[in-house]
């Protein structure tokens, strides 16, 4: 991002100098293009996953890795069980958006670090309930269902060509799905749910099902129709078919502005079926000249 910004600014500077203006004091135009920190520089191209059954991490060839971190929270000012140090609470944010609000701090640790080493992540944020611990547990238990019931808009599907295509031709399909987020209330807490499309299962209507795969496919310009793609399909029979794609969404949720926690299982949302008519093409060659003989075969 910074690189692109820097590049654009640099181009402008060249124009200005080209017009014969005198360079002034140091400005953004003279800056080297990349300024960032380890947070950005350290992003690799690979997704690491704790490989089950081993003691090491491995890179994923496809797909989206799970969250590599675990999270926990601690109540601020908690003396024991249900007693809070009131003087300490006075210096904390006021958690009055619901009943029995308590400030908490969130901590994070890389998964599989054993013993866990928790480092401060964010906070203080608020948790509300008679027994706030229970509220978070209840949300964790119910978030899967809530996520799957969210009004997530499934992908829209397009075929190229469409709706009519030819037997044996590489018919290109692509899906368009967007990240979506929802604000809901669960057990008195404000919960922000985000659904990110990560994988697709293609069902072409003729019994062929492909996926889940990370491929959403993409639009081809008309001169390239008929080329095989990651998501194209060749129908082996003529007829009318209904192609669908099921989009697999990964969910995260955040309670009262706390960290984004993963929803354990993906949500699956099927798109509306796309009608596809598969036709046979027959080529016949005629040698009549239709101008000379307008009644000839094929004229």
């Amino acid at each position: 991002m910074f690189w692109r910004l820097g590049g654009r600014v640099f181009t402008v500077a060249c124009l200005v100098l080209g017009l014969g203006m005198v360079a002034g004091p140091a400005t953004a135009a003279d800056d080297p293009p990349i300024t960032s920190n380890w947070g950005d520089f350290g992003i690799g191209t690979l997704g690491w996953q704790a490989l089950p059954g081993t003691n090491y991490w491995t890179v994923l060839p496809v797909g989206i890795p799970e969250d590599p971190d675990d999270y926990m929270f601690k109540f601020q000012c908690l003396i024991d069980q249900n007693n809070y140090d009131q003087a300490c609470l006075a210096s904390q944010p006021i958690c009055s958006a619901g009943k029995n609000g308590h400030p908490v701090l969130w901590y994070t640790s890389p998964k599989r670090t054993n013993p866990r080493v928790w480092t401060f992540f964010t906070g203080p944020t608020c948790i509300y309930d008679e027994k706030p611990k229970d509220a978070l547990d209840l949300i964790a238990e119910n978030i899967q269902k809530k996520f799957e019931e969210s009004p997530i808009v499934a992908a829209s599907v397009v075929s190229q060509p469409g709706p009519n295509t030819l037997l044996g031709a590489h018919t290109n399909f692509y899906a368009t799905a967007a990240e979506q987020s929802f604000d809901v209330e669960m057990f008195g807490q404000k919960v922000h749910i985000t659904a990110t499309p990560v994988e697709y299962t293609w069902s072409y209507g003729d019994g062929v099902v492909v996926g889940p795969s990370p491929y959403a496919g993409g639009s081809l310009t008309q001169d390239r129709w008929g080329e095989p793609t990651n998501t194209s399909h060749q129908y082996g029979a003529t007829g009318d078919f209904a192609a669908t794609v099921t989009t697999h969404f990964r969910g995260t949720y955040s309670v009262n502005g706390g960290p984004r926690l993963p929803v354990a299982n993906q949500g699956h949302f099927a798109s509306a079926p796309l009608p596809v008519s598969v036709w046979r093409s027959v080529v016949k060659n005629y040698e009549d000249d239709c101008i000379v003989n307008p009644a000839g075969a094929g004229c």
């Binding site: 992003i43 690799g44 690979l46 997704g47 690491w48 991490w57 890795p65 969250d67 590599p68």
Partner: peptide, 9 residues
């Protein structure tokens, strides 16, 4: 050989 974030692109 490699030092990078666990959560890749």
């Amino acid at each position: 050989l490699t030092v990078e974030h666990l959560a890749g692109k």
